[in-house]
Amino acid sequence: MIRRLLALVAALTLTLPSPAAAYGVYGHEAIARIAMRNVAPATRSRALALLRQARLLETPGCAAATPEHASTWPDCIRAMGARFSYTSPWHYQNVDICQPFDLESACADGNCVSAQVDRQVELLKNRTIPVREKVAALAFLIHFVGDLHMPLHAGDRGDRGGNDVKASYGAYTTDWLNLHSIWDTPLAERAITTPPDPVRAYSEQERAVLGSGTTKDWSREAWAVSRDVAYAQALGGDPCGPKPTGRIEYTNAAIEASIDAEKQQVVRAGLRLARLLDEALDPANAFTPQRRRR
């Protein structure tokens, strides 16, 4: 299991620009499945109708025809070069965990993940844009809500979301493993597969409580998890202590202590995505699965 997970991390690290894809394939797909289990039936139908037109994106090497595929499409297209290179800053907003929370400084000109979550919702509501742009907005929204909840995309110490903090995952280590990639894939998969299964239908009360808030609220929350769990566990309890000069060990004890926080972020992301999809794809707003005639 561990070797398979680490091989997946290696593949992502070698094929994607930094910062690495938040939550990797497994985490993003889990978030999409949670959302689809918890949206209104009409929302699910409208989302699937849009994704059936994913061919309009003209990205044959990057599928987006299902919620799971759409959840990783924005990472896949980053490997297509100049056509989508402008989207790279949209995946993160690394706010200094050792300073007061300051989202505005990390979001210049809307080039950060929380601003893009808000933007994609508005695009889905917009009655004037073509279907192709709505399909892209849906895929971006599914993905960016996941990115927003990945702690190492929300807070760091000027180290590219932990990419510069070389680390081992328990006893396992490689040249490319770091704090970011640990939270991105092996820890995320460990948390998601630890019972109880987070991919389920949640009660109305659970959805109301866990799905509440704004993108700024969610940003602050993920930033706090980065500080209080990810960096604190990695650096022996003091997230703002001396920066490591060599490879650190994310110990088995640190892994165990991080599982609940990692899983909670995945569940929050799934339920909040469900809420945003219900709002964005409400027929009273702008959804249409068909091409509009000029």
Score class of each variant (00 low, 15 high):
164 D>S: 09
242 P>Y: 13
196 P>C: 13
184 D>I: 01
183 W>C: 02
129 I>F: 03
224 A>F: 06
101 F>H: 04
205 Q>T: 15
167 A>D: 04
202 Y>H: 12
263 K>N: 00
257 A>M: 02
106 A>D: 08
198 P>R: 11
45 S>V: 14
5 L>G: 04
63 A>L: 12
160 R>Y: 06
29 E>W: 03
260 D>V: 12
229 V>W: 01
11 A>E: 15
51 L>Y: 07
3 R>P: 07
221 E>C: 06
80 M>L: 15
236 G>D: 03
43 T>E: 05
165 V>R: 06
108 A>R: 14
8 L>E: 15
192 I>Y: 03
166 K>F: 12
193 T>W: 06
109 D>A: 15
280 A>D: 02
146 G>A: 09
60 P>S: 08
179 L>H: 09
265 Q>I: 05
127 R>K: 13
150 M>L: 12
183 W>I: 07
179 L>W: 01
256 E>Y: 03
129 I>P: 05
22 A>H: 11
104 E>T: 07
95 V>W: 03
196 P>V: 07
130 P>K: 08
205 Q>C: 02
164 D>Y: 13
149 H>V: 06
63 A>G: 10
133 E>C: 08
76 C>S: 09
203 S>W: 06
239 P>V: 05
191 A>L: 10
40 A>M: 13
217 D>Q: 10
194 T>P: 09
236 G>Q: 01
187 L>A: 02
271 L>E: 04
239 P>N: 10
77 I>E: 07
17 P>V: 07
172 Y>C: 03
41 P>R: 08
105 S>Y: 11
50 L>M: 12
122 E>W: 03
42 A>D: 13
250 Y>E: 03
259 I>V: 15
67 P>S: 08
21 A>Q: 14
58 E>H: 14
94 N>P: 04
262 E>Q: 14
190 R>Q: 15
241 G>L: 00
10 A>G: 05
135 V>P: 02
